[in-house]
Write a protein that binds this DNA or RNA. Structure first.
Lengths: 209, 209
DNA sequence: TACATTTGCAAACGTATGTTTCAAACATCT
DNA sequence: AGATGTTTGAAACATACGTTTGCAAATGTA
């Protein structure tokens, strides 16, 4: 096989284009011509555009869910108490390492995650929460004992504030980086931004009303 | 005039529908039939769909910018040093009061703001930053002396994390509130959530790397 | 009243979209 | 090699969209 499989080429093109322009704004014709693939291939391999969108998410989330599950297994096996910062670092490592430290892809996936939330795409939300609900609630359940001073309501809102900060800033990372004066150089590298983000979240989550 | 002006009815419908479903996902036919107005009225009164989107934003942002400018004038006139919390409270009051404490509209506008960031190909972003750049940089300039321990880069990223937390959580407020067990009652009222959000942001913004 | 301008409306236009069709090319297995 | 099932390709289909048009109704102005 001289070049990648049709299915993968479609997924690659779709992932990049969706992240760049949104779902509704990206036509199947743009995707297929970017992927050098016939228009009908999408409906043949995936069935519909909706199903293609879901497939893009699954291709990214499956390794992430696996990586996260594995790390949670390890961490819990060590029997040590998991602090909030332990958990935050664990999650960010799982996300970053889920695709061979391809930071660009991680960033563009964060954009997709942001789109999935804002762009109503109800089918996606239902599909994802049904498919990855178990891992995510497992993670949240570990958060509770790590923040003993917080009520459940505290924790609920603080985690969503944190999620918002992460999704928003990482999904707009490209645009934000461009706003910084160019001499910021090393300081805007995404690994540093993630460190900043973790510090921000760590401080915020601990707050109770 | 038995009912509201055509222009206002279009703006009302567009604002609600855009917030609910996004820009590309909301057709002019849906807007005009919701507003009980002829299809051609949008292009007649606004010129194009793009211009309608901009008009929706302007109708909300104009009073907000005025209110914010006024409050900043007052605050600076008092010659007292403005703390970070002073500034956060000032901003949240400006946002909430800009439209007669209509919290629902504020929430749905937050959703629009989120959409504008993730979903616009730039025309909206350029238009808004050109039109409201002055007020927003004035506000950010006041933030700097309020956080003397932070470098400019610290402040840049922290404010965007905070913006993300605010936009994300308020724009999804409806969905989030529904996730809480119903006996949370008073604790999920939006004024309380805003207080939580301000506390979260206040703690996070102070963090330096 | 008479005229000019603005607003409202139904229909149509051109275009772009997601999807389907069906025959050709390809691969796989006996 | 031949039969069978899978994948591609070019074209068409049906539909939904933003926009434009032409004319009627309403409104303002003298």
């Amino acid at each position: 096989m001289a070049q990648k499989d049709t299915v993968d080429r479609i997924l690659d093109a779709a992932e990049a284009l969706f992240a760049e322009r949104g779902f509704a704004e990206t036509s199947l014709r743009t995707i297929t011509s970017t992927a050098n693939v016939n228009l009908a291939a999408v409906n043949y391999h995936f069935g519909s555009k909706k199903a293609l969108i879901q497939a893009v998410f699954v291709r990214f989330l499956e390794p992430l869910a696996d990586s996260l599950t594995l790390r949670l297994d390890e961490a819990e096996a060590s029997a040590k108490e998991l602090s909030l910062d332990d958990l935050l670092v664990l999650l960010s490592k799982a996300i970053l390492s889920a695709h061979g430290d391809d930071v660009t892809r991680t960033a563009s996936f964060m954009r997709l995650l942001g789109l999935a939330y804002t762009q109503s795409q109800g089918h996606l939300r239902d599909y994802l929460s049904e498919r990855y609900g178990r891992v995510s609630t497992r993670y949240v359940d570990l958060l509770r004992p790590a923040c003993p001073a917080l009520t459940d309501t505290d924790l609920f809102w603080n985690t969503h504030f944190a999620l918002g900060a992460a999704v928003f800033s990482l999904s707009n990372y490209g645009a934000l980086e461009a706003m910084l004066s160019d001499d910021s150089g090393e300081e805007s590298k995404i690994q540093n931004v993630i460190r900043r983000l973790l510090a921000f979240i760590s401080a915020g989550v601990k707050v109770s009303l």
